[in-house]
Each structure stands twice: as structure tokens, then as C-alpha cells.
Design a protein around this nucleic acid. Structure first.
Length: 566
RNA sequence: CGGAGUGUAGUUCAGAUGGUAGAACACACGGUUCGGGACCGUGAGGUCGUGGGUUCAAGUCCCGCCACUCCGACCA
């Protein structure tokens, strides 16, 4: 490719509203342009990278025996009705109508479609297991796009779906895919952490995110110092510890409050006790059923909404209660009781059993309660883990501190189990015993654009991008200097043709009539792994430099070709 | 959807108190340069996001809307 013909230009400066390195550099170096928020053009350079990422993924996924196919982007809305996902609040489905008023969902994920195509065949256990996948544009009606390619509304995703006879064979498939993902991200130059995660409405124990640790990521997770435990904040478990105040035999009592105590902080000052000795009550409302939940928790801990949603079987449906909601159960902010409000369902955190003689729980305008004990003075409908793990908390084995990290989620793998195949009719195979059984499913996704951004976040310096070899837009950035000299011009053109034609190397040849400094600056910015220079200075040789190094070498054509192991 | 901010040339930005729109870089042409974003000259490029209002006069003041960025909420 002649640089002078390349569509897209580099800029001297990054756009001012870009905040992440990947956004700045991919824009500045001419890889992407924004259409509207969260929708991007991939310019020729960006498209090359995107295709190379897909190639790496395809080779590795194909090696597992999975087969690539494609599905329509417009999904019949009927399918989504079968699995009730049109009503799943929280996941905003984008819909379109054709001129006959038939409704379609713009695919944001394709479980229903893949189940649908599979059930068009009468398969037997002999056909199992199998895995089918596609690369396709996904649409997400995100409330807010952010960070360039990190969170977008339209993106190419590799989504794979596995079909097994039972959980045992699925487990093997899942494990194989986890290993494959690890290898893919190794090849792409992204050191990922495998993070235990929440798989939302489905439940179940297998769900992992592949995360690149990065300050600009949106995924919060906790890991032990030795890395043996690594879990998303929505599932991370920790040890509460036991806080023994004094004898449990002191009777529960309502006491006068000499001052009006308003918040947890004021309580701590007033009673001269740490926050852990107080009862904290947080109220949520299920926006679908209208149920009101009061989460009761030790005062030093916070409620994790996702954990609470899982405990109450209301995934994606809880909102923080409004003043109106509080009024309905007969209370107001600051005066929510840990028991007794009619019309509310009490869910307690297991930390309630780690303290004797709590303060609070029945706070009124002039009085408060003390010496309150869980089990003796009050109970909740459920006593489960609904607390959010935080930096410095102790791991479940009690031996290590948890470290909180943030990162970019570049891929995920899910156990779907029978969730879809039970909701959708005829999603069955004929088993050995001649009976129809639902498929046991898993799904596996990788966002291509986000992966590209993650690679840039990981691989750049002050001068520009530093692409790993596997996905660089070109293998060689050839810089021709002194091109007005016909001898040099011929030499560099001969080299270009030799390498591209005989050796099939991908080369970006900077043939422009601009200053050397500008060509070098662009080479660094674009970030192709190897830079070659032909000029009057290099004589019969060719200067070779790697993007990652400052060293330059003068090589003969033969030596050069050797370097590329041709 | 809540909070904050920004919209002026392709990009980065300047345009106090209202008075007929500017620079740098990029782009085109000519010339001089030529190993780390060279220089000189010439030129082209703007319904100042949009609609309305106030005013003799609005990029500037007021109101509505739109878009974008950041924080939060949301995120199979």
C-alpha cells in the first residue's frame, strides 16, 4: 500500500474530548472516526486491524471444532417473546418494523436465533456436542457510550453457542473454550485475568469474564494477593469477621436519644462506637412486581445490588426506593426499621450474625433501640450474602487480603444450561433412550472493537501505538527518503515489489514528498512493528528498526528476508 | 434518565464589556529544503450546532431544541 493513496490521515494532535489513550491514538493515527456517539467508522487501517483480530479468533475457535456461520441481524420478535426477553427490563431491545408492520429486534445477542436454527433440525445425541458461531454486528441501546471503542452502541462481536447433551460434556466444552480464550488473548498481546462473574438472570456456577487490568476499564473485580481467587465485585465473597461487643444477655431496649441523630456518621460520633455496631437498612423496589425489599446489613458494609437481585430472584429489576415508596411502607429516609414495616420483605446480610448488641433498627424521632440481636430480637426472610466486597477485606479462606482492581472486559463465557432450550419449544434432541431432551447450552463472546481498544491501552508509548505482530495493520512500514533521486527511488520501489510480490509481505510504503521527520513521526504513531528506511544514507543496504526498540541495523536484502523467516 | 461541561475552518483553539469572523497545524499551487512533525510566498476553506427572542446591530445577551464529552444510574 502506498501511503500517498491511503484513505485517512494522521493528525498532529488528538481530539480534545478523547480521554482514553486508545481513543486518542486510534483517532489521531487515522484508524477510526466517529459517526454518532458509540458508532464508529473503521477506516482502512482500523479495518485491517479488526480483520486481523477476527482472523486470530477464527483460527483458534475453529481449532476447537466450532463452525462459523451467520445469522440475520434482524431477529423475529416472536423468538424474543418465547424467552420473555422482550419484557426483560434492563436490557433495552432495539426494535424495527418492516412495511408490513412485522416487528424485529436488532440483534444485541443471538441465543434465540441459534436455538431457532438448531431446532429446525431433528438431531440425535450422536450429533452432539457441537458449537456454532458467527462474527456479526451487535446493537445495544446503551444509555451512554464512553471511552471511544470501549463502550459503544454498535460493534462486531464473535458469539459462539455450544449445544451439549448434559452438563458433564458441557463442562468439558466450557473448559476447552476457557483455554482457547486464554490463548487468543495471549496471541493478541492482552494478558487477561479470568474473573468469576455473575451471569445475570440464568444463575449457575459457570460464568467468567476475561479482563485486561486497566484504569479505564469498567469492570470492578477483587483478587487475592496470590491471584488464586479472582471475582467480579457482584459475586466476590469475603469474610465478615466476628465483632463481639459484649454479653448477648443484655436485654433489648428502647432508649432516649438526647440529640437528633441523623446519619450513620452522626451515630458513630454520638455512641462512640464504630460503624460496624449499627444496623443499616437500605430499601429497594422491584420495578416489575412492585415488591419492596429492605436490605438489612452491618453498618460498615454496603449492599451490592446485584447480589440482592440474585437473592430475591429479581435480576435487573431493582431500583433504589423513592420517598413515595418509603411512605407506602409507613416510613421515611433515615427512619427505616430493620423489622416490622408491613408490605416490605426483609433480606439480611450474613454479617448480621457477626455482631452482638447492635444499635439501631427501630429508630424513631426521639428514641432508638440498643442491644439488638439477630435471631433473638428480629429475623429476616432470608439471611444471605448481599454485601459488596471492598479493597482490603479478607478472603473467604481468611488468609489473604482482597485487592480491588478495574479492567476492560474483552470476552466472556457463560453457562446457559437449559435456560433457553426449556423456554423455547422443540429445542430438543433425541437421546439414546429415544426420548426428547433439551440441549444443554453455553455461549461465548468476544467484542472485536473493544479488544482493539484494549490492545492499544496495553501497547502504546508517548509517540503512538505499538501493535503486536499478530494484528498490526501491515507487517512493515517502509519509509523512502530522498525519492527525488531516481536511483534511490528505483531501489526502494524494487524492494517494495520484491517484498510484496515475491514474499507476500504486507507493506505500508511511505512514498510522500514530506520531510523525514514527519514520516518517522507517522511511523511511530501508526505503530507497525518493523520500520525499514531506504535513503541516500543507507547505500546498498536497508535500515531496519523495530517499533519497540531504538536500535537500528543496516541489513542487506538477503539478511532482511531472513529476518522475516521466509 | 439525574448532575456537570462543551459546541466557532478538517484538527487544536482565540474571539472582555454586543459593532460586518481570526491564528496555528492540515489542504491546494510555486519555490527553497530533506534522517525526527523544515521554510518562504500565494490561495482556498466558516449557514459561528439549531430554532426563536431582545436589539439599529447577536459568535457574544435570553429561551427552547439538538449533538457531543465527563461523572452517576443502566449495561445479555
Amino acid at each position: 500500500m502506498y501511503y500517498s493513496k491511503l484513505f485517512g490521515k494522521t493528525l498532529r494532535k488528538a481530539p480534545s474530548d478523547a480521554t482514553t489513550s486508545s481513543h486518542k491514538l486510534l483517532f489521531q493515527a487515522g484508524f477510526v472516526r466517529e459517526s454518532t456517539a458509540g458508532r464508529y467508522f473503521f477506516l482502512p487501517l482500523g479495518q485491517k486491524v479488526q480483520q486481523k483480530i477476527m482472523k486470530v479468533i477464527k483460527e483458534e475457535i475453529d481449532a476447537t471444532g466450532a463452525q462459523e456461520m451467520t445469522s440475520p441481524v434482524l431477529h423475529p420478535l416472536e423468538l424474543w417473546k418465547e424467552t420473555n426477553r422482550t419484557n426483560t427490563t434492563g436490557f433495552e431491545l432495539m426494535k424495527v418494523k418492516d412495511r408490513r408492520d412485522t416487528e424485529f429486534a436488532l440483534g444485541g445477542t443471538a441465543e434465540e436465533m441459534f436455538v431457532d436454527v438448531v431446532r429446525k433440525f431433528r438431531l440425535s445425541y450422536k450429533d452432539l456436542p457441537f458449537c456454532i458461531y458467527q462474527f456479526s454486528t451487535k446493537f445495544r441501546d446503551e444509555l451512554r457510550a464512553r471511552g471511544g471503542l470501549l463502550r459503544v452502541r454498535e460493534f462486531i462481536m464473535k458469539d459462539a453457542y455450544s449445544f451439549d447433551a448434559d452438563e458433564a460434556t458441557f463442562k468439558a466444552e466450557y473448559e476447552k473454550m476457557a483455554q482457547t480464550y486464554k490463548r487468543i488473548f495471549d496471541l493478541l498481546g492482552i494478558p487477561v485475568q479470568i474473573v468469576e462473574a455473575d451471569n445475570g438472570y440464568i444463575g449457575g456456577e459457570y460464568c467468567h469474564e476475561f479482563v485486561l487490568e486497566s484504569p479505564v476499564g469498567e469492570t470492578s473485580y477483587l483478587t487475592t494477593e496470590d491471584g488464586t481467587y479472582c471475582a467480579h465485585v457482584d459475586v466476590a465473597q469475603f469474610t465478615r469477621g466476628f465483632i463481639n461487643q459484649h454479653s448477648k444477655s443484655e436485654p433489648f431496649a428502647i432508649v432516649e436519644q438526647p440529640e437528633w441523630v441523623k446519619t450513620m456518621d452522626d451515630n458513630v460520633t454520638h455512641y462512640k462506637k464504630p460503624a460496624s455496631h449499627f444496623l443499616k437498612n437500605v430499601v429497594y423496589k422491584n420495578r416489575v412486581s412492585g415488591d419492596i425489599y429492605i436490605a438489612v446489613i452491618r453498618g460498615d458494609l454496603d449492599v451490592n445490588k446485584t447480589k440482592l437481585e440474585r437473592a430475591t430472584n429479581s435480576i435487573g429489576q431493582l431500583d433504589e426506593a423513592t420517598d413515595d415508596d418509603l411512605r407506602k411502607i409507613g416510613t421515611k429516609r433515615g427512619y427505616v426499621h430493620s423489622w416490622g414495616h408491613k408490605g416490605a420483605i426483609y433480606i439480611g446480610d450474613i454479617s448480621l450474625e457477626t455482631v452482638t448488641n447492635f444499635i439501631g433498627g427501630q429508630k424513631m424521632e426521639k428514641t432508638d433501640s440498643v442491644n439488638v440481636n439477630y435471631g433473638r430480637d428480629f429475623t429476616c426472610k432470608l439471611l444471605v450474602d448481599i454485601a459488596e466486597a471492598k479493597d482490603g477485606y479478607i478472603s473467604v479462606d481468611g488468609k489473604q487480603k482482597l485487592i480491588k482492581k478495574t479492567g476492560i472486559e474483552v470476552g466472556n463465557i457463560f453457562q446457559l444450561g437449559y435456560h433457553y432450550t426449556r423456554l423455547m419449544k422443540n429445542a430438543t434432541f433425541i437421546d439414546r433412550d429415544g426420548k426428547q431432551k433439551p440441549y444443554y447450552m453455553g455461549c461465548y463472546g468476544i467484542g472485536i472493537g473493544r479488544t482493539m481498544a484494549a490492545i492499544v491501552e496495553k501497547h502504546h508509548d508517548e509517540k503512538g501505538i505499538v501493535w503486536p505482530k499478530s494484528i498490526a495493520p501491515y507487517q512493515i512500514h517502509l519509509v523512502g527518503l530522498n525519492l527525488e533521486d531516481n536511483g534511490i527511488r528505483k531501489k526502494v520501489l524494487d524492494l517494495y515489489h520484491l517484498l510484496t510480490t515475491n514474499y507476500k509481505l504486507e507493506i505500508l510504503f511511505d512514498d510522500r514528498n514530506v520531510s523525514p521527520g514527519e514520516k518517522f513521526a507517522d511511523a511511530d504513531l501508526i505503530g507497525i512493528p518493523v520500520r525499514l528506511v531506504v535513503s541516500k544514507k543507507t547505500g546498498e543496504k536497508i535500515e531496519y528498526k523495530q517499533r519497540t526498540s531504538k536500535e537500528t541495523y543496516l541489513l542487506s536484502v538477503e539478511e532482511l528476508i531472513e529476518r522475516f523467516q521466509i
